[in-house]
Design a protein around this nucleic acid. Structure first.
Length: 656
RNA sequence: GCCCCCAUAGCUCAACUGGAUAGAGCAGCCGCCUUCUAAGCGGCAGGUUGUAGGUUCGAGUCCUACUGGGGGUACCA
């Protein structure tokens, strides 16, 4: 049941008459029926009279009156008013609300209708590179993708999640090289994943070192050149008389300064990479002994791809271990995938795909590389390097083909950082050329995780914050509060409480933000348990359970045999209306795949509930029927919170 | 150079895709636990939505220019 939808259908035939049955115009007008911005204007408002008045040359108020004369809203609306320039304010009928509440009460889906146009979705998210430790940057894709998959399935679509693991890239070359040259066998035997991760970081450091050494001179001369230019310009500025010329020079100076800052930053990075090795005698020796490590690593990767037995064997040994390590994180996050087809899965199909694109005339060789040139793009999409190796663009194309052929996908969502915007634009353009132009291919992008300095997030050491550590800290903080508030809480219960609240709040912190915004990583905010957090909603849920325990009314029999709802106070009606908006919130989420809209809804519901809680004591309610009506409201609130949080991948507790 | 995002309260973010008086949470101040769990509630304070124009009945939202920040830009993913 969706009140907004019902209202739109009531208005549809009348509006259609006004716009000569133009369906898209009708829909545009109906889209102007929306929840009231301010509760004192009613429950919903319709804003179509203004543009319609404009088009027909009538006054908007006259249009509104005509529409309302023809539209029979009795039964669903209690009052209908025209206000201001021509706003139509709609207030739902109490009896109608009560009927809807009853059907929600009796329904395990809370009367959320299944969509009529069910589609097959593939949701591609998380997709970490195996063999690199997962860091805080991975959590965003993981929780957003997981929430979208759950919501799509709940409303009746068929959504399959796919973890498109980076299990075939250069990082494996690093590990292979590290394993062959630097491994500590004892450590490898006792703590394999720790040793692999150490090897990865070690090789990374050495490559960065040599890279920085080569770049150093270039960077230094570039910086010096820029500084000369800067002083020249300053000279010119002081000599110049003309106002406009001075202004122009000033602008040039500020541009130069920006470039100087950039160059200085790069130089700083290079120096840091060099110092990290040279200040460490052991590392210096290793660096000196492996001058060609960069190309050697690429060679190891190439050998792996070419089917070299030793490297393949090592890969088959490492991969399950790495996957197992990631799985512990996914388990803690309660995230599951329907499939985890990594890049390696598509390896055997890549050659044929490149050949096909070439044969069809979409791809051609340029500078030795196989490229697809696209209108509107400066650079082509390279699908095979000049050394013969394939790229992730090739794999992504193979993935699209696989998903279309095997899952008959109507839509693929890629929950990936917005920095890959252009990659996906090209990918989708090539897919359309290739013939996959029916399905919706959508880059559900999200902002970068930034540090407090406004730069992409990194810790001082240059390593990004580990995900495991973040989860530990989240649970620890939740445990501290739970212990403080519940003296003598059992160890098991404390642990469960900390897990549900800590992890839930961490996820919610990510989900509650508009995914488009870059997000500033803030330890305190990520781990906050007060205000607009999962803990707030979980607390609301737990309090309902507390009430039900206290008043000793079992809500379950009331679900199928409810008493008549009574709105003794304004707040009870407000809570009721808010409860009926659940389906609306879910459909809002899916318009542009924004889970934060569900968070907004739940937080509003929570606030309304706490007001109700404050004003309507069930314990002191004398009338049995009123008490039961309130129990029913509580029951619906708890179930809506529980269901809503579950759709975000967050759990609830009976007691906190 | 070219292209893409972003700029909203001291801080971190919303604003249902053009609607009525721009909302929350932190942080600050004042209240509320002998009253169903204070991880809560009520109140105060905080804004020329980066700047300047434009479009229209109506703009944080759309267009233009500018300023500032981030990202991308031929063989990394």
């Amino acid at each position: 049941m969706n009140a907004l939808h019902e209202l739109k259908e009531k208005f549809r035939p009348i509006i259609a008459g006004f716009v000569a049955d133009d369906v898209s115009k009708t829909d545009a007008m109906l889209a102007m029926i929306r929840p009231a911005g301010d509760a004192k204007h009613g429950d919903f408002q319709a804003n179509f009279a203004m543009p319609m008045g404009k088009q027909t040359g009538q006054s908007p108020r006259a249009v509104a009156e005509t529409v309302l004369q023809q539209c029979n809203l009795s039964g669903i609306c209690q009052t209908v008013d025209i206000a201001g320039p021509g706003f139509i304010n709609l207030k739902l009928d109490d009896d109608w609300i009560k009927r809807q509440l009853k059907s929600a009460l009796a329904d395990s889906r809370l009367a959320v209708d299944s969509v009529t146009n069910a589609r097959n979705y593939i949701v591609d998210y998380s997709s970490p590179n195996v063999a690199k430790p997962m860091h805080v940057g991975h959590i965003r894709s993981t929780v957003i993708g997981d929430a979208l998959t759950r919501i799509l399935n709940f409303v009746g679509h068929c959504a399959k999640s796919d973890n498109h693991l980076g299990d075939w890239g250069t990082q494996f070359g690093m590990i292979l090289y590290g394993y062959k040259h630097f491994r500590d066998q004892e450590a490898f035997d006792s703590d394999t994943i720790g040793e692999l991760s150490r090897l990865y970081r070690l090789v990374r450091k050495l490559i960065d070192y040599h890279g920085a050494r080569i770049k150093l001179v270039v960077l230094e001369t570039a910086l010096a050149e820029l500084e000369t230019q800067q002083s020249d310009l300053k000279q010119k500025q002081s000599e110049s008389q003309e106002k406009s010329a001075v202004k122009k020079i000033k602008k040039e100076i500020s541009q130069i300064e920006k470039r100087i800052n950039d160059a200085a930053e790069k130089l700083q990075k290079a120096t840091t990479a060099i110092d990290a090795v040279e200040n460490d005698s052991e590392l210096s020796l290793l660096a000196a002994a492996h001058p060609e490590i960069g190309t050697a690593v690429l060679l190891e990767t190439a050998k792996l791809h070419a089917g070299d037995q030793e490297n393949r064997d090592l890969w088959t040994t490492f991969l399950p271990i790495c996957k197992q390590d990631m799985q512990t994180i996914y388990d803690r996050l309660d995230v599951e995938f329907d499939m985890a087809l990594g890049e390696s899965f598509y390896n055997d199909t890549l050659g044929a795909i490149v050949d096909e694109l070439e044969a069809k005339g979409f791809a051609r060789e340029s500078d030795g590389a196989m490229c697809v040139f696209l209108d509107g793009f400066e650079t082509p999409m390279i699908i095979r390097k000049k050394d013969g190796a394939f790229l992730y663009s090739t794999t992504d194309l193979a993935t699209i083909k696989y998903r279309m052929d095997n899952f008959d996908a109507d839509a693929c969502l890629y929950v990936v950082d917005h920095r890959q915007h252009e990659h996906f634009e090209k990918l989708f353009a090539v897919a359309a050329l290739w013939g996959y132009d029916e399905a919706e291919l959508k880059h559900v992008s999200f902002g970068t995780v930034m540090g407090k300095d406004g730069k992409p997030f990194q810790t001082r050491s240059g390593d990004t914050v580990g995900l495991a550590g973040l989860l530990n800290e989240a649970e620890k903080r939740a445990a501290d509060i739970a212990r403080e508030l519940n003296e003598g809480i059992e160890a098991d219960e404390l642990k469960e409480n900390a897990r549900v609240v800590g992890i839930g709040s961490l996820k919610y912190a990510d989900l509650s933000q508009n995914r488009a915004s870059d997000y500033t990583f803030d330890y305190e905010k990520m781990l906050a348990l007060k205000g607009n957090t999962a803990a707030y909603l979980q607390y609301g849920y737990a309090r309902v359970q507390g009430i039900l325990r206290k008043v000793e009314v079992d809500p379950r029999p009331l679900r199928d045999a409810p008493v008549e709802f009574e709105f003794e106070t304004e707040i009870e009606r407000a809570l009721a209306v808010q409860l009926l908006r659940f389906e609306e919130a879910l459909s809002d989420v899916l318009i542009d795949y924004k889970p934060n809209l569900l968070c907004n809804y739940l937080f509003d519901l929570g606030q309304t509930f706490f007001k109700f809680y404050d004003q309507c004591s069930l314990k002191d309610t004398q009338s049995e029927t009123l008490k039961h009506s309130r129990v029913q409201l509580c029951d619906l609130t708890a179930r809506t919170i529980k269901t809503g949080l579950a759709l975000l991948g967050i759990g609830v507790l009976d007691q906190m």
